[in-house]
Design a binder for these strands. Structure first.
Length: 306
DNA sequence: AATGGAACCAACCGCCCACGA
DNA sequence: GTCGTGGGCGGTTGGTTCCAT
């Protein structure tokens, strides 16, 4: 059998049905492993990594065809992200039929959407420390994937046994394994012990003021993640206050060493803003844990409206 | 109907880690 | 102990589709 040399050109881009067929045949014969064998044997001009990705994200049996996230799934993603951070593979375990790529894609869209929405509603500001603290304190306790799936199955059984309970399908299983007993979702006015509200990484941060200054300068600004069409307006000469299109990820993870500070644009033009970015950033290793990050920031100084 | 922006999706890249030689 | 390799994962990018104007 003809074997591909290591230097032979690897194909990139979309997969054809024929390639999928060959890959499926490989999995049938060898199992979902030894991915580099596919290119080594000359079955496909694809890297092993590419083959594995194709299998995991598209060809693997049991994947959901309808890809759009339901409101329940969306809430679940928010809850789990608050708990695990950007551990998409871990989070994806709570979503049978979804891949980490699905979750990741949803999250990035979600954050962009909320960031945009947030630009329209600015109010009083708290410091980044408080914002990060919010991220931590709002984290909810989440069952393990195994426990979660077990509870899903149990819920399915219960649902089929008691058809009259239509609420159970709409509440967050993560927050509340027994949805009907969740005081937030079902008895919002009742005086019950406080429960952690489902956390929204954008809206749960306080609105921003019309004018504020950052102190000290932001450690990192995520300009490079601005993307093609969506970002062109910003770079083509409209450094309007707060118009920066946020990147996909850095605003999402409080544990990331580069805190995204979208509001560095507040009350400043693009040039000033760029000047404010330190040219040399400390390496990630300097941030051993979240407290290091928090300690590195002073609370923002609010300019008095008077 | 045309257009632009937003949303969605697929797939690549780079880093990291486990594991065997 | 080290090195190479395969595989996993998070981050990123680019193309396509949808939708509002």
């Amino acid at each position: 059998m003809k074997r591909k040399s290591a230097t032979e050109k690897m194909r990139k881009g979309p997969w054809s049905p024929e390639e999928d067929t060959i890959l499926l045949e490989h999995v049938r014969n060898n199992g979902a492993r030894n991915w580099s064998l596919v290119s080594f044997l000359g079955l496909l001009p694809r890297t092993g990594k590419s083959c594995r990705l194709r299998w995991v994200n598209k060809l693997r049996p049991g994947l959901k065809k309808g890809r759009k996230f339901t409101p329940e799934e969306e809430q679940k993603v928010l809850d789990l992200q608050a708990q695990f951070g950007n551990k998409w593979a871990t989070i994806a375990k709570y979503f049978p039929g979804r891949t980490d790529n699905d979750v990741k894609n949803y999250w990035s869209i979600h954050c962009k959407r909320l960031a945009r929405a947030r630009h329209d509603q600015r109010g009083p500001l708290i410091g980044i420390s408080d914002q990060v603290a919010n991220l931590k304190t709002n984290a909810v306790s989440v069952a393990s994937p195994e426990e979660f799936l077990a509870s899903e199955e149990q819920e399915a059984v219960q649902g089929s046994n008691s058809k009259g309970n239509s609420d159970s399908g709409t509440s967050s299983t993560i927050l509340d394994p027994q949805p009907d007993l969740n005081p937030i979702l079902h008895n919002p006015v009742q005086n019950l012990p406080p429960q952690p509200a489902p956390f929204d990484p954008i809206f749960d941060l306080p609105p921003l003021p019309e004018i504020c200054y950052l102190q000290p300068k932001p450690r990192s600004v995520n300009l490079s993640q601005d993307r093609h069409r969506q970002s062109t307006r910003f770079f083509e000469g409209e450094p309007e206050v707060g118009s920066m299109d946020l990147g996909q990820t850095q605003l999402t993870n409080p544990n990331h060493h580069c805190l995204n500070y979208e509001d560095g644009l507040l009350d400043s033009g693009l040039d000033e803003f760029m000047d404010s970015v330190p040219s040399v950033l400390p390496p990630p290793e300097e941030f051993d844990d979240l407290s290091d990050i928090l300690d590195s920031f002073e609370p923002p100084v609010l300019k008095s409206p008077h």
